[in-house]
Each structure stands twice: as C-alpha cells, then as structure tokens.
Amino acid sequence: MPAILEVDQLVKKYGDFEAVKGISFNVDEGEVFGLLGPNGAGKTQTISMLTGVIPPTSGTARIAGHDIRTEMNEAKKINGLVPQDLALYPTLSARANLNFFGRIYGLGGKDLKERVEDVLRIVALTERADEAVEKYSGGMKRRVNIAAGLLHHPRLLFLDEPTVGVDPQSRNHIFESVMRLNRERGMSIVYTSHYMEEVELLCNRVAIIDEGKIIALDTIKNLIALLGGGVIHVGLERVDDGLLERLSALPGVEEAVLMPQPAPPPLAEQEDPEVKEREPVTTTPIIKVVAVNSQQAIVNVIGFLNEQDITLTSLEILEPNLESVFLHLTGKKLRE
C-alpha cells in the first residue's frame, strides 16, 4: 500500500523549547493511524505543521507526494483538518457553517449543496441543520466540527482529539463515522487522542508520542507484546543492595528495575497544609517486574520477599493494553 503521508524528521522549536523533536512516520493509503500521547506531548503541534497552520522549524513531510514546504497549497487540497477546538461560528446554523467552509474549499452551487447534505447525513444532523450551532449539545457540535472537515472529500483526514468533552452516545457516533469513512470511502485518517481505548478501537497502527518524540510505533498487537508476559509493579518498604539482581534471577521474571520516584512537589506546595492533607507524599520505592510468565513471576516474587522479610506496600498487575505500554515505556500514566 503506498504511503499517503511521509513525515521526515519534523521539528518545531519555540526559542530554546523544542515542542516536536524530529518526528518521522508514514501513513499508508486507507490506513487509520493513531497518534497516542498525553496532553502536551506534541500531537497538535505535529498536526498543525502537517496541515500548514504553522511552519516546521526543520524536517518536512509529503502528502500524496506533495512536499509541505514547497507545495503546501496542493497538500491542503488533499487533506482535511478536524481541529481539537470547536472551530465553528456558534451563531450560525450548521448548514450556514458548512456552506461557508465549503466555499473556502472552492465549492459552490449544486456541488456545494450536495456535499453539505452528504456530510450532514454522515454526522446524522440533517434534521437539525438549520438550528444555530450554539443551541447544540457538545456532542452535536463535535459532529458538525467533523462534518466541516469532510466537505471537500479529503483523501487524508486529520482528526485531532475529536471526542474531547463528548457524551458516550456522540462518542460512539463519531467512532462509527470514522470507521465508515475509512471502510466505505477509503479515507486515510490520522487520529490523535490521549484515550487509549479510542486508539485501540479505531487504529491499525499507533505511534506513541511523549515530550515531542515518538517512543514506539507499531501495530497495537506488537506494542502490547512489548509487555512480554506481563508487567507487575511491586511497592516495597525498602530496597536492599542486590535486591533487583536477585529478583531478576527468579524463574518467570525477565527483568526487575526500580521505577523512577515521582518528583517531590514544589516547596510552596509542601508547606501548604491543605495539599498535605489531600494527598500525602509517598516515598515508598516501586519495582517494575517484567515477567516472562506473570503468574509464575508473582508467586516467586512474593515468596522471595517474604523470605527476605521485606514488606510489600502495593502490588499492581498491569493489563496488556496501550495504557500499560505507555506506562512501561515512560514510567508515566497517559493522563498524568
């Protein structure tokens, strides 16, 4: 399958701050590709560069062979953007909004009218199309937001966090629309989210992005396989010298490593009695045990710690999903 999007060492800097640090990936024609990462990871910045909203500092990308540095206008005709914000005019009706965005993409007359009806059907808003958008629910607004990105029949659609603040019913509707667009119209989709469930449901391949870098890129199956036989987080009272080596040598255990300790809160926060009361600061060490066989590993680790008279303070067995993969790779939770 030929690539519709080829991203090559894309960088975005603001002064000394590097928001996107040399990202590279390809998206095949007809693929739903996920960009998964926490807020502030650089997903929106990447999409903004790919859609011509902001120029890259260095690197480039090609959309259907058109270089975004030299042929952005051609690239813009091929792709569509559904921004994270509800980028609509609230006092205008859905139809007026869509008519306007259609004209901006060069549509007019009968063609425009037909396309507007078509996208209204896709997002199931035909009956309420003449009401002002400000009267819609959050989910309906999201659906109009998506419809506006579909008017010109893009071959590549960028959906930037399209389900933020949406009720479950509208969220399901959005998922169905995305799948139908991909299945029935062969539309390639780049889907960014910090909800791993969405990405798992919709995407063929996923790039996990954190702090402006892609830290893993593969199919969901292969990414989950990174967890091996499973990952166990074991909280301990203390960590003696040589403990990690001895845990790593236990049957069923591939590796035992000490998790990085969370950074202490700022001084001002430490002195704030309310903060202390709300969330006591814990310094208990946590060991990440990567298992070859998780059941065997749990039994052996607990038995060994009892022998050593080391008290367990917590035990967490990570489910094999993208959230666990992200935690495994970064030591952070996706929604931290």
């Binding site: 011509g52 909203v53 921004p83 914000d85 980028a87």
Partner: peptide, 13 residues
C-alpha cells in the same frame, strides 16, 4: 481563540 482562524489557514485559501 475558538480555532476557526486555524481551520481557515489549514484550507487552501
């Protein structure tokens, strides 16, 4: 602030 300006800039206009 709403983001419509971004959307317009992303269009071939």
């Amino acid at each position: 602030e709403v983001g419509t300006l971004r959307r317009l800039v992303a269009a071939p206009i």
